[in-house]
Simulated assay, not measured.
Amino acid sequence: MSNTKYILGHFEDPDDMMHGIDRLQENNITIYDVFTPMPIHGIEDKLGYKRSRLPIAAFCFGLTGTCTAFSMIYYMLVYDWPMNIGGKPSFAMPDFVPIMFELTVLFASFGMIITYFFKNHLFPGRAPRVMDFRATDDRFVIAIDARTNPYHDKIDDLLKEAGAVEVLHNDRKYVSYE
């Protein structure tokens, strides 16, 4: 058995790459991932990716900020140190709104930054995981798991017919910068 883990099809044009995806899917070949130097409209639908759950995470982070702000203000101004300011009641909800809004935005933004770093494995000090360096510059790369798709010659021919400039057989998952 060969040591090939991934078959990488390099394309110079995004339309050729989309055609290559169609050709591979017509022949029931599963695609591991696609790497592009720029966003391509409609590629998520073509690859069958589900809708992102990031809006739900942002809402949860914002709700946490709102609840934190409300409980903090309520504890400070109503329970711990109630003050009579201009005859207003201690629990005056309109006074809470600006601080609640600010903490909602703060928690949502920092939560999304942390989620982004966690999901993309971009923690400080960690080398990025890249399948092929040219995919970050000028090439469009289709990665196919060679172990689940045994017909390597057929895959090579399909990629070349679709307009692949180069087809590589990679023996490791990621290339590191070191």
Results as ranks from 00 to 15, higher is better:
F101K: 00
D45S: 13
G111P: 12
P37L: 07
Q25L: 13
I73M: 11
F61W: 07
L63M: 14
A135N: 10
E178Y: 10
I113E: 02
D138H: 15
G163C: 11
F35N: 14
F35W: 06
A92F: 15
E178D: 12
S90C: 01
A57I: 08
D95P: 00
I7Y: 03
Y177S: 09
I31P: 07
N3W: 05
T136W: 00
H121L: 12
D95C: 00
I155Q: 15
L106R: 00
I29Q: 01
H152P: 02
L168F: 10
N170M: 09
I29A: 02
D157G: 02
G62A: 12
L158F: 14
Y75L: 05
V175R: 12
A58T: 11
D138A: 11
C60G: 10
S2R: 03
R126Q: 13
G87C: 12
G163R: 03
M131L: 13
G87P: 11
G62M: 07
A92N: 15
M1T: 05
G65E: 03
N120L: 12
T4G: 00
A69C: 03
H10S: 06
R53K: 15
T104V: 05
F11Y: 15
A162C: 12
T115Y: 04
W81K: 02
N149I: 00
D153I: 07
V105W: 03
T30H: 13
F59A: 14
E26Y: 03
H152W: 10
H152M: 04
R134H: 06
T36A: 04
P55N: 10
P14L: 03
E44P: 02
Y75V: 00
N149F: 05
L159Y: 10
H41S: 05
G62D: 06
M131N: 01
C60L: 15
I142E: 10
D138R: 10
F140W: 09
A164N: 07
G42H: 09
F11D: 08
F35V: 04
H152V: 05
T136K: 11
T36W: 02
A164S: 14
N28D: 13
L54R: 04
R134G: 13
T115D: 04
I155D: 14
R134M: 06
C60Y: 13
K154G: 04
G9D: 08
Y151C: 04
P37K: 05
Y6G: 00
R53E: 10
L77H: 09
D15A: 11
I73E: 08
I7W: 05
K50P: 11
L158A: 08
D45E: 14
V141K: 07
L158H: 11
A69W: 11
M18R: 08
R129P: 06
Y32E: 15
I29V: 15
L47V: 07
I144P: 04
I56Y: 09
N120G: 09
D45H: 04
L106W: 03
N170S: 14
E161Q: 15
V165N: 09
G62Y: 08
F110W: 08
N84S: 14
